[in-house]
Amino acid sequence: MRRPRLTTSISQVLLWLFTLAALVPVYVMVSASLRTQSDFLNHPFGLPLAPSLTSFRTALNDQFPRWLFNSLVLSGGSVLVTLAFASLAAWGFARHRFRGRETLLNVIVALMVVPPVVLVVPLFLLGVQLDLINTFRLVIVIYVGLMLPFSIYMLTAYFRTVPSALLDAAIVDGATEVQVFRRIVLPLSKAPLLTLLVVNLLWVWNELLIALVFLQSDDSRTLMAGLTAFQNRYNLDIPVVMAGLTLATLPIFILYLFGQRYFMRGLVAGAIKGE
């Protein structure tokens, strides 16, 4: 290809600048977490030449494992429930005609833009009435409610592409509707389901506002809410805070490393409706 040298090298330099800018803060976090307090204070941002795990030990000895566990339970639970509801609902939208179907679907899409902060006050009052503050049950219901619109929307779009001839053939062969759904549709939908799994897990794991408001006791905190408490508790011992951050990021990072495809596909899939 005939392309001027200069443009190519300029664009390479620019790309490396962006890449560097994206990675530096991550490097700061990891390198600080691997050092002791005094080492950090002497030269805060050099390479950790003598890596030490003291900070990680301090972090782990605090309530960290408890918060980690809470986050795992919450995200696992709410995402699985969301996927189950969303696939059934999307199946209804894609396969069954009923009055007001399109309107209902449009309402669901519109719900995607409701800012969660708007729901916090009424739901909190409700939570107090039902005595469900600091319980996972209420928070899981809220998370499921917030994740459903996008999930239903995306699965409906996908289910509609499944050829109905295939499904009708199965019904003629004597399969019930439930069997068709479980044996044919779900196995065919592995890719979108995995995408939703990854995108939703990421969202719940990173969610802060609802966790902060609805889970206030130290024992029921999620990791993200815990980290902000951590920041106050150890605000003079930066390495410990950074160790906490590193630990909290690790699961997401691993997920990203192996599921990069699904992350990106999920985002692009969400964009299709915009066009």
């Binding site: 994206a22 976090m29 990173n206 980290l227």
Partner: peptide
């Protein structure tokens, strides 16, 4: 991979860093 990484990081983590 690098440029997309920040989008995946938890916002609280980003905030504290």
């Amino acid at each position: 991979f690098a440029v997309f990484l920040p989008y995946v990081l938890p916002i609280p983590v980003v905030g504290v860093i």
